[in-house]
């Protein structure tokens, strides 16, 4: 049994213009020690699906799932109180903006010790010792002094390390990193990603990496799940995905990588992700897809088999290559 098993996860937001489906029938599995990358443009529902798992969405969101099983517990059937025993302990998350994700009124030490005291019932002394150890682990120099610092006294990269230290403080089984490097400098980005992968190696926790940076995916992930407009459109291990993407959207994303550009102009995907009021009737990607025909525009495609990367497409790409090999 996998560590995390999501089946048919959907999230709908009640808006003034009616219901808006931000996540649409998503299935995901993560094992221990797995690094799963979820990629897609802004508005593809990557973060929302993970926030739904954590139970962090506002009350306007309605979360439904056939299964939302984490470590043997079905989170969707638990009370809020029981869920709080798991969230923050076995299931942890870090966010995009480290500067605003820490409370400005408390020292970072207080914020780390708080989690330890609530979940593990540590006393002040034990929590302090563990916090020092954690700061050491995430590579924060001079931990004793830094624990007394307030978030505004540290850099974005340091704050993200604090967030990571806080997230892994109770030895979580699964860590969700929601675009952890987007707000950071490029040099710091690499350090933070290295740190996450190293921690995965050392603790054996599962890691879900939400990103829109294909370069990050190539360097860190084992499996990639591509999301578009709330749906999972393709999932493959990282190498086959880069070599032979089956969904036209994946292919277009990869073509837009600067490293892969052959032309003077960088290829882009025309148009934007459909919003609440311009959802197409058939395949959601059809208005932007170079291969789409009338059939695509009318009939929504179902996911294909595992050999085609579960691609939600009527005309998957690179099918010959599979036959040839």
């Amino acid at each position: 049994m996998s560590l995390l098993r999501l089946r048919n996860l959907s999230v709908e937001f009640a808006t003034t213009g009616g219901r808006f489906r931000a996540v649409d029938q998503v299935d995901l599995d993560v094992d221990k020690g797995d690094v799963l990358a979820i990629v897609g443009e802004s508005g593809s529902g990557k973060s929302v699906s993970m926030l739904a798992l954590m139970g962090l969405l506002p009350w306007t969101a309605k979360v439904t799932a056939d299964e939302m099983i984490f470590d043997g517990h079905d989170l969707s059937k638990m009370s809020a109180r029981a869920r709080r025993k798991i969230v923050g302990k076995d299931l942890a998350m870090i966010f995009q903006e480290p500067m605003s994700s820490l409370n400005p009124c408390f020292t970072v030490g207080f914020q780390i010790r708080e989690a330890l005291r609530i979940h593990l019932g540590m006393d002040r002394k034990a929590a302090q010792a563990r916090a020092l150890e954690l700061f050491d682990l995430v590579g924060i120099p001079d931990p004793e002094q830094r624990l007394k610092a307030f978030p505004h006294q540290m850099s974005g990269g340091m704050n993200q390390r604090v967030m990571i230290a806080m997230a892994i403080s109770c030895n979580p089984k699964l860590l969700i990193a929601d675009e952890p490097t987007t707000a950071l400098d490029v040099t710091i980005q690499a350090q933070i990603l290295d740190l996450l992968v190293r921690l995965r190696d050392e603790t054996g926790m599962g890691l879900v990496l939400i990103t829109h940076d294909m370069g990050v995916v190539a360097e860190t992930a084992q499996r990639v799940s591509v999301h578009y407009a709330g749906q999972k459109v393709e999932e493959q291990p990282v190498r086959p995905l880069f070599r032979s993407p089956h969904h036209p959207y994946t292919s277009a994303l990869l073509a837009a990588l600067p490293e892969r550009a052959t032309d003077k102009r960088l290829p882009t995907i025309p148009g934007v992700v459909p919003g609440q009021f311009d959802r197409p009737q058939g395949c959601l990607f059809s208005p932007r897809c170079p291969y789409a025909d009338d059939h695509c525009r009318k009939v929504p495609p179902a996911p294909r088999g595992p050999d085609l990367g579960l691609a939600r497409c009527h005309y998957p790409l690179n099918t010959d290559e599979r036959l040839a090999s």
Partner: peptide
Amino acid sequence: GEDYIRTARAKGLPPGR
């Protein structure tokens, strides 16, 4: 609505706290 409140909830803190 601030990010650090989301962090506090992600830590599994009780609503009163």
